[in-house]
Design a protein around this nucleic acid. Structure first.
Lengths: 229, 229
DNA sequence: TTTATTAATGTTGATTTTACACTTAGTCTA
DNA sequence: TAGACTAAGTGTAAAATCAACATTAATAAA
């Protein structure tokens, strides 16, 4: 009978995380060198299995924390992957999540212990199973998400310059943007605070630091914006 | 050990389908009156369990077919829902799919046997479990999807009038659209064939029938469009 | 042939988007 | 301390797109 619970099959459920970071070299992902079979020694997304009494979102949070030591991170469910032989060991359905982290904050020691490593998205190694597909989908989703929600800031330090923000969007979209047009579009969203403070690292003149004004953004109770870059 | 397959928990995986249809009354969904416990007699999305050697997409196709007799239907995975007690009988994770069907094509006898029924999306009954959430998400996704891909046509007959197309988009977006602006935006996509034939049902004058030009659309090898209505 | 009904069609002003280059501030060095 | 260097900061004009709006056309019924 179609709807009988008892006769239905149970399956393994995994969670794989596409962990994005950003630095002055561009958009990065955190990968791990598998130290167990199958595909030992190959590069892989960071993942784990769902526990019986755990919600998918929590599993993703747990897995991210265990590899990076980070909490309170922006994560979003991407898609469930279920090809029969996607994992050669055993039938496993994987629900992919992507995370946006400030690359400076992760626990370096932890990721070293796990043989994890940051790779430029542009020239990441071939990944195991269907992880390349997951990554491709994650980038597509990231482009969409950053065009309607203020989540790009998750990838930057608390205080950032307009140039950093510009380069972040350029990295996400894989295309060059016009500086002046970009700045005026960002300013028209009216969600940044321009600080007194300047960043003196990048130039003699120094450039103003900005910070995302979450209170103001939330107070608008608004629908998503449309950021056409 | 975190990555050991054998010690990981297995869970039940369900697939629930949000089946959209459209007629002159507006956007509809197909619901079923549950004839088993729990929540017997309540309205529910159409669903079933994933089989051991089945891919999620196939399960969704199988379930849709079994309730409507339809094949070759546009379906898209929506999201995986995993709240611990979402199904009170047993821990079940459900992957929701939505389907777009031409409402005239379904097998009426089949859906009658299943006590399935079409409801206006606008005033659908309260659904069991988290199915209301799924429906809400499906509508949001449908709005997005139809704004970038030519999938709205899936909800219409092979041949349709501009008025039908307009009313479809109005139903999807829950807002009125300007007829002239709508038509010129649609025409600028250049993906419809205007037939000689007219539909004489709706008026004395009759209105031209159109059909979606899939060949032309595919031939463009293009990225998604942006339909700003 | 008049009437009634829905289909079909274009223009204008407003807004948004794009393309584009010079000045400024501050540090370094000669 | 003057001049050179470097990235930051800033505005405008032309083009494209969007939004608002009303009349004529075709046909069947009376």
């Amino acid at each position: 009978m179609l709807n009988s619970y008892s006769s239905a099959d149970k399956v393994l459920l995994a969670v794989d995380c596409i962990i994005f970071g950003f630095d002055n070299e561009g958009l990065k992902i955190l990968l791990i060198k598998r130290d167990f079979e199958p595909e030992k020694g190959k590069w892989s997304l960071i993942g784990g299995f769902l526990k019986k009494d755990e919600v998918l979102d929590s599993a993703a949070i747990r897995i991210l924390d265990s590899y990076t030591g980070l909490q309170d991170i922006y994560m979003e469910q991407l898609h469930a992957y279920s090809e029969i032989d996607r994992d050669p060991v055993e039938r496993t359905i994987s629900v992919a999540y992507f995370a946006l982290i400030n690359i400076e904050n992760h626990n370096a020691e932890l990721i070293q212990n796990y043989h994890a490593q940051w790779f430029s998205v542009a020239n990441a190694p071939k990944l195991i199973f269907d992880h390349d597909t997951m990554l491709r989908h994650a980038i597509r989703r990231l482009r969409y998400r950053t065009s309607i929600k203020p989540v790009g800031f998750e990838l930057l330090p608390e205080k950032f310059t307009m140039r950093q923000l510009l380069e972040l969007y350029e990295a996400i979209l894989s295309k060059e943007l016009d500086k002046r047009n970009f700045i005026s579009k960002i300013n028209s969203l009216d969600i940044l605070i321009k600080l007194e403070e300047k960043d003196m690292m990048s130039s003699r003149k120094g450039s103003y630091l900005y910070t995302f004004d979450k209170e103001k953004y939330d107070a608008k109770l608004l629908n998503d914006f449309v950021l056409n870059l």
